Computed example of a mutant assay.
Amino acid sequence: MLRINRENLKASHQMTWFLIDFLMLGLLIINLTFIIWDSIYSFIAVQNLLKEYLPTAQAVYHPIHERFIFYDLAFVWIFLTEFVIRWGYSIKAKIYDRWYFYPFIHWYDLIGCIPVGSLRFLRVLRIFSIIYRLHQYKIIDFTSTRLYTFVAFYYDAFMEELSDRIVIKVLSGIQREVQSGSPLFDRIQHDILYPRREMLSNWLSARVAEAAQQGYIPNRGALRAYLEHRVDNALKQNLELSRLKYLPVVGPTIQDTLENAVGDIVANVIHQILDDLASSTNHAFIEDIVNVFLPEPKANADQDDNKEALIALISEIIEAIKTQVHVKHWRNNLP
C-alpha cells in the first residue's frame, strides 16, 4: 500500500510545491479518466447501448461529449497555468543554467496540453514525473507496492531474456571469427599482449609472491609434515626398497636412513621452490613462463600448432560462457 511520509514532507521545505503536485496528480487522473471515457463513448455502438439500457445517463452525458473540447480546455488552462508558474520559479531560483531550459526539459508537460487526439495521453508522462519526484524526496515509496514488485519482476525477466540473447549472439559471432582465422586473435597476441610482456611478468610475479606468502609461509610446518608422510608411504610401497630390510644386520638401518633422507630431500626441495616463489627472486622464473606463452612474433610450424590449440581453448571458453548465459536467474525468484 502506498503511504505518504509526512516527516519527509515537512523536512523537504517544499510543502507548497508538493501539495500542488498532489493536486495536479488528482486533476490528471480525473482528466485522463474523462478522456478515456469520452473516447469509448465516441463509438456509436456504445452510445446505442447506453441509449437502450441507461437512457438517462446517455441523455445527460451526450451534450458533454459534444462540448468535450471545452471541458478539456478547462483542464488545459489549469495545467498551463501551473506550468508557467513552475517555469517562473525555476528562473527565479536558477534551477537550470538558462531560463529557456525548463520547457525543453519538461517538454511532455507542454505537448500534453495540446488538446488534439493522442497528444492528450502524453499527460500520463506527467503523472510518472510527479510520482518520481515524490519518490525521489522520499515522500512516497512506490517500490514497496505490489504493482511495482510485479512490474519490476517481469521487467527484469524480460531484460535478462533480451540481454542473454544479445550476449549469446555476440559470443557466437566472436566464436565464428576466431575459428575462421580472424586477424583479431593475432592482433590480441602481437599488438596488445606481446608489447606488455614486462608488465604482465611484473604483475604475475607480485601476485605469485603474495599468494605464496599468504598460503605457504603460515602453513610451512603442516606442509612439511604432510610431504614427509606422503613420501614415507610411497617408499614403503616401493618393492626394491622393501627388500633392503632382508640384508643381515644393516638392512633395516639402511632402509630407515634412505626413507628419512628421501623425505627430507623432497621436503627441502619443495620448501626451497615455495620460498623462491614467495620472494622477489621469482621474477626471472615468471618472465620465462610469460615468454613461452608470448614468444616473439615469427612464422613457424610450432607456432601454428600452438595457435590452433589456443583457438580451440578460446572457443571452448566462449562455449562455457554461453552455457552459463543460458541459465535463467529470474526463474529462481519466480513466486
Rank of each mutant, 00 (worst) to 15 (best):
D304T: 11
E287D: 13
I174G: 10
Q213G: 11
R165I: 14
P297K: 03
H135R: 07
P195A: 15
Q14G: 02
F75M: 13
R123F: 01
N282R: 14
D256K: 14
L200M: 10
F70T: 05
I188Q: 09
D109N: 11
Q14S: 11
L223H: 11
Y194H: 13
R220V: 03
G215W: 11
R120C: 02
Q214P: 00
D256R: 14
D156T: 09
P248R: 03
M15E: 15
S315Q: 04
H283W: 11
T145L: 07
E66C: 00
L110Y: 08
I286D: 05
V167D: 02
N202R: 08
Q175K: 12
R220S: 06
I131A: 10
D191H: 14
D164A: 13
R123Y: 05
I130L: 06
R126P: 01
I35G: 08
L80F: 07
L134C: 10
I139W: 04
L134Y: 10
I270L: 05
A301V: 04
P55D: 15
I85Q: 01
A45C: 01
N333A: 09
H13S: 12
Q272F: 15
Q47L: 02
G181V: 12
I168Q: 03
R243F: 15
M24S: 04
F75I: 13
L80D: 05
R197A: 04
L277P: 00
A299P: 00
R243T: 13
A312Q: 13
A278H: 13
Y226R: 06
I111F: 05
S172K: 08
V151K: 02
F185P: 00
H229N: 09
D264C: 00
F150Y: 06
Q324R: 08
V325Y: 02
A261N: 10
K307C: 04
D275Q: 12
A209E: 12
G181K: 08
A11H: 04
L310T: 01
L241A: 08
Y102M: 09
N306A: 06
T149S: 14
A45M: 13
I111C: 08
G112L: 01
D305H: 15
G181E: 05
